[in-house]
C-alpha cells in the first residue's frame, strides 16, 4: 500500500494535475506580485477571482468563445480594481475594510448575478459556456512522461508559466519593474527621484486586478463548463499567501503556488486510497510556516529589538 501511494505521489498524472491546478494560482499571484511590491495592504484577491470566474463563464456563454470569456473576466477585474483604487487611494478608505467588504460582497454579487442572469441558484451548467479545448502536441506523444505532463492541457495552463517568466522579466529587467519595486520599498526615495508614487500604485493594482480576473476565468472554462456559488473556494487567499511568502518575487511565488497546486493534486489522486487528504493539504502551510520561522531565527536580533520592522 505504501509503495502504491508513493508511486501515485510521484506519478506523471499527479504532476500533470498539479500543473493544471496551480494554473489559476500562478496567473493570479504573478499579477498580484506587482500589487504586493507596492505594498498597500490589499487582501481582496478572493473577490477579484470569484468575480472573474463569473464573468469568464458569462463572457463565454454569450459569445461562445472562451477567449472572449477570459477577456470579459479581465475587464471585470479591471473595473473592480478601478473602484478599489478610487476608494483606497483617493477617498482614503481603510484598505482592510474595503478588502474584506470586497471579498464578502463578491459571493453575494456573483450569486445574485447567477439568479438575475440565469435564474438559478447554487450551480449553473450549460454547454453554451464553452470551455477552452485542450491542446495536443504530436511530437510529445512519443515521450511517455512528458506526454502526460504537457499534453492535453488548455491554453491557460501553458500561458500561466509563460506569464510567470514574463512577470519575472518585467519585474527585474525593465525600468518599469525597477521603479515599481522602489516605490514599494521606500516611497519617499522614489518621490525624490522624480517618480510618481501614486501612478505606480495604480498600475500595480490594475495588473493585479486583471490577472486575478483572468485566473478566475480558468475555473469555469477549464472543461467543466459551469459556474457555481463560491466557485473559487479560498483560492484567492491561496494566491495572497503565495505572494506574501514569495515576497512578491514572481518566480518564488510561482514555486509556492506550484506547491499549493501539488498539494491540491494530491488530495485528488490519493482519494482512491482512502487516505486523509486534509493532512496532505495541510503540509504546504506547515512547511511554509517552518521556513518563515527558520528565517526568523536566523535574523534574530536580540531581546530589546521589539519596535523594529517585521518580515
Amino acid at each position: 500500500m505504501l509503495i502504491e501511494v508513493l508511486k501515485t505521489i510521484i506519478s506523471p498524472v499527479a504532476f500533470a494535475a498539479a500543473l493544471r491546478l496551480s494554473c489559476p494560482l500562478i496567473i493570479g499571484s504573478v499579477g498580484g506580485c506587482f500589487n504586493e511590491k507596492i505594498s498597500t495592504g490589499n487582501l481582496a484577491y478572493e473577490c477579484f477571482m470569484l468575480v472573474g470566474a463569473f464573468f469568464g463563464a458569462y463572457g463565454s456563454f454569450i459569445s461562445g468563445s472562451p477567449v472572449i470569456g477570459s477577456l470579459v473576466a479581465v475587464l471585470s477585474g479591471f473595473v473592480l480594481a478601478l473602484i478599489y483604487g478610487l476608494l483606497v487611494y483617493h477617498l482614503n478608505c481603510n484598505a482592510m475594510i474595503v478588502s474584506i467588504a470586497y471579498n464578502n460582497a463578491a459571493w453575494a454579487l456573483t450569486t445574485l448575478l447567477l439568479v438575475v442572469i440565469w435564474n438559478t441558484r447554487g450551480q449553473f451548467t450549460d454547454p453554451r459556456i464553452v470551455s477552452y479545448s485542450t491542446l495536443d502536441m504530436d511530437f510529445l506523444k512519443k515521450v511517455p512522461f512528458l506526454d502526460t505532463l504537457f499534453n492535453n492541457n488548455i491554453l491557460l495552463v501553458y500561458l500561466a508559466y509563460i506569464y510567470a517568466i514574463i512577470g519575472h522579466i518585467i519585474m527585474y529587467m525593465t525600468p518599469f519593474g525597477l521603479r515599481l519595486r522602489g516605490v514599494g520599498s521606500y516611497p519617499m526615495a522614489a518621490q525624490s527621484a522624480g517618480i510618481s508614487v501614486r501612478k505606480y500604485r495604480w498600475i500595480g493594482l490594475i495588473i493585479m486586478g486583471c490577472s486575478m480576473g483572468l485566473a478566475g476565468s480558468y475555473m469555469p472554462l477549464s472543461g467543466m463548463s459551469l459556474f457555481s456559488e463560491n466557485m473559487t473556494r479560498g483560492r484567492g487567499f491561496l494566491c495572497l499567501t503565495s505572494i506574501l511568502v514569495g515576497k512578491g518575487d514572481p518566480l518564488k511565488t510561482t514555486v509556492i503556488a506550484l506547491l499549493f497546486g501539488y498539494a491540491n493534486a494530491m488530495t485528488l489522486v490519493l482519494s482512491t486510497f482512502n487516505l486523509p487528504t486534509q493532512i496532505v493539504s495541510m503540509l504546504p502551510y506547515v512547511a511554509v510556516l517552518a521556513v518563515l520561522l527558520m528565517v526568523g531565527i536566523r535574523n534574530y536580533k536580540g531581546a530589546k529589538n521589539i519596535t523594529g520592522d517585521t518580515i
Binding site: 525597477l178 519595486r181 526615495a189 522624480g194
Partner: peptide
C-alpha cells in the same frame, strides 16, 4: 534616499536607467 530591498547598482541607476 536608498531602497533597502534593491541592490546597489539598481539604486544608482533608479529612474535614470539606460535601456
Amino acid at each position: 534616499m536608498l531602497f533597502d530591498d534593491l541592490t546597489v547598482i539598481e539604486n544608482i541607476v533608479y529612474a535614470y536607467e539606460k535601456t
